[in-house]
Design a protein around this nucleic acid. Sequence first.
DNA 1: ATGAAAGCGCTAACAC
DNA 2: GTGTTAGCGCTTTCAT
Lengths: 333, 333
Amino acid sequence: MSIRDVAARAGVSPATVSRVFTRPESVAADTRRRVMAAAEELQYVPHAAARSLAQGRTGNLGVVVPDIANSWSATITKAVQQEARRDGFALFVAGSDEAAVDEEQWARAMVPRVDGLLLVSPQMPDTALQTIADLIPVVVTNRVLDDIPAVLTNTFEATGHAVEHLHSLGHRRLVYLAGPQGYANEVRLDGFRSACARLGIEAAELGPFHARFTEGVRAADLVLATEATGVVAYNDEIAVGVLNRLADRGVRVPEHVSVVGFDDTGLAEMVTPRLTTVRIPAASAGVAAVSLLLSVMAGRDVSGRSLVELPGELIIRASTGGVPGSVATRGSQ
Amino acid sequence: MSIRDVAARAGVSPATVSRVFTRPESVAADTRRRVMAAAEELQYVPHAAARSLAQGRTGNLGVVVPDIANSWSATITKAVQQEARRDGFALFVAGSDEAAVDEEQWARAMVPRVDGLLLVSPQMPDTALQTIADLIPVVVTNRVLDDIPAVLTNTFEATGHAVEHLHSLGHRRLVYLAGPQGYANEVRLDGFRSACARLGIEAAELGPFHARFTEGVRAADLVLATEATGVVAYNDEIAVGVLNRLADRGVRVPEHVSVVGFDDTGLAEMVTPRLTTVRIPAASAGVAAVSLLLSVMAGRDVSGRSLVELPGELIIRASTGGVPGSVATRGSQ
DNA sequence: ATGAAAGCGCTAACAC
DNA sequence: GTGTTAGCGCTTTCAT
């Protein structure tokens, strides 16, 4: 069932059929109708590969995320998919399970199948990333590399707000639970350290942990072995793991220990107590990444706007409260 | 950078280069090495579209899920992606947001770009589904349609176990919170009704609800307006929404009300109290679906094994307990 | 074991 | 506004 069959049936040339499917307005209205009818009757579907070959473009985008089943990845993937669709692109998705090798393999496998590639928090070496970016338009999130456009979630300030928040509640000893090494973790850690230093807070660090619930469960006991009264976790999943384990050990949140997460994934509002967290606009990040990618693909000069920064925002919920005995406790007893 | 460039550099014909990339063993060892070297130096990447056109296959699979960001969908997508990879396929992913129209559009958009299509719990009309299945190999999950291979999650029995479990705890009035209309909901509802009838339990039904947290929050108040002491929710997200709202209204789980979910997504273990739920092996479903799809694509006769059933399993956790005043309460006070 | 040549289905000049 | 023609880059007979 090719374009020739349709052409024959409609009594026109193959080129005309092609035009109907590419620039319909360039064909006379009633010829167009005849062609459409013929295509309909024959159940004709244009052959994507042939089209790609002739046009030199695939109409596909690709995204590689750390973990498809992770809530943050899924949210960003969803936004990317919807945005890609608006622009007429289909989307390849792959998860690397946080393995740099798989990530690189996937990126390479996608290169010939897509017009542009989005790498979410990539872990692969700079050189590998650069090699791929030389082959095809690439946009990354949460990674800074010369000449590669990026969407960054800048949580430095918001992390400071989280620490200030805990400080105002009387906390003087905090611990940060580190996530996988990378831009996101660095910014959070920097924000944590600098705010603690500024406020005279005793700051400890544990980890790194994988960005998963079970790791938070494990982290909780390590936290209790310190003197910290407040925990700032790399992400919501770790924070929720902490919440869970603390509850099992009879430690009450926020009465005994306060917990702050990052991301504000749906999870944060689903747990008890609801989680205080630094919201990161995952959907916006996805949308921004796609539009940046499209700019690069269009060959537009993006040097000016090639680093999009999205600020975090502290969302205060029920997992943070006054330190026992402090004045701040009064209202919450 | 085409196959001709590589051929020229290696001093062989394009055909030989092609062979090196398709059936390496059919080329003399040292010719092969020369070609590989040339390809390497030129950074040659085979052109996917040209390859597809010549071979008549794309090397791609597609999956359409109800919601990329939903935990169940994400888990199955992840499994599908990993399984597809094992077999050398890249994966297109699209989310329909539970809209039958979008779902159908995506499926149609994918048809020319893939060798096989997996539709997860499709909502589109039978005829639309059939039309697509006539165009390309299709496998569905949680949908029964003549001649279309399917992976079904059979939760009838396990739902009965859930009801028995509640009955044994003294519950005599239960309510089922219905999810979106479809196979999964029907089986759960059937299992619920038949077990209630068998055990002489007063069975009410509410809904349908979207399979989301916020819908569970909404449902909780409706539940409290009934006399039910036990809730069986369509999925974990709804169940967790119920948990949340009940806590806000001062209703204790499981002391006052017991709650059961479905799916056993990661969520079930993260909330307080941990959720009793009917586990459905999402990852296995994904793997089974892909292998079924590959069979269909290979033209193998699947008439015998074209309906794969995966049984559910009741996982008892902390969200179910004895009815107040009943003998079953004793241990838990 | 390797080369020559045809063609996969479509698009895009270029003519008319 | 429509037809003719030459590829897009690769695979695959068919020779040799």
